[in-house]
Amino acid sequence: MTSQLFVNILLSALSLGVIYFLLSSGFALVFSLLRVSNFSHGSLIMWGAYLGVYLVEAFSNFTLGLVVSVVIVGFFLALVEYFLFRRLYGGNPLFELLLTFGLIFILDEAVKLVWGAALIPVNKPDFLKGTVMIYGEPFAVLRLYILSLGVVVCAGLYLLLKKTKLGLIITAGIENKEMVRALGININKVFTFVCWLGGFLAGLGGFALAYFTGLSPEMGASQLLNVLVIVVVGGLGSFMGAAIAAVIMGLAEAFIGFYLPEMAILSSFIVMFIVLGIKPSGLLGEV
């Protein structure tokens, strides 16, 4: 293997890892604060993809379509939190899980109802077509765009969580909700905001994925599986763990896919079994 090829696979793996990070960060954030495992996350990703592509074509403006679609998906999850999750806090966590599971049916069937059950190919806007030369090998601009999107989101989340007062409240809420309440902060509002952010990130991940794989009504279910595996490998409730696991998954999928193509579909399971065998609580899990 030449070093050029190696760099090329490495960059592909990184862009894959960044997509996985975009997809799973919302789930990890919502879980770490609310302790709700949001099974409808995959469906939100799908909504982000369909709505994003639709709005970009409707507005014929890339940035506007992107922003409007992800904000709408965010508001959807915030509404779900406000009207549905709130009724179940403090009870058996099983019911929250089942509730989000029920939402999958509604969201997935709604996509089929609006856009039909067929696969839809996505036309890339002009500035995402073509390749650039990196280290003497062609590299798709689309992957660069996704890499940069991931870096921007990562930096934004870091700034939000570490440098703002809201981030401080969120971090404190992850540690101890009762204490935050006792300090006179209305944590329910923070919950709603975090759900909005979770939906926002899901929509963004779905939007990035749409230009990568096209649109299909099955993408919600398959992405949910990816997200869950990544979050478990990273350690449930650990945001950093999910980010690291996403990059590891990207690397594993790209390299296993290159050397053993028939095993590529099982690569994420292989990584999961290895990690859980060594450390059952995941990479950075606290359990």
Binding site: S37, P93, L225, L228, V229, V231, V232, M272, P280
Partner: peptide
């Protein structure tokens, strides 16, 4: 593991 782990791992 906690029950949610069980759910996810059985799904996988």
């Amino acid at each position: 593991f906690a029950t949610i782990y069980f759910t996810i791992v059985t799904l996988a």
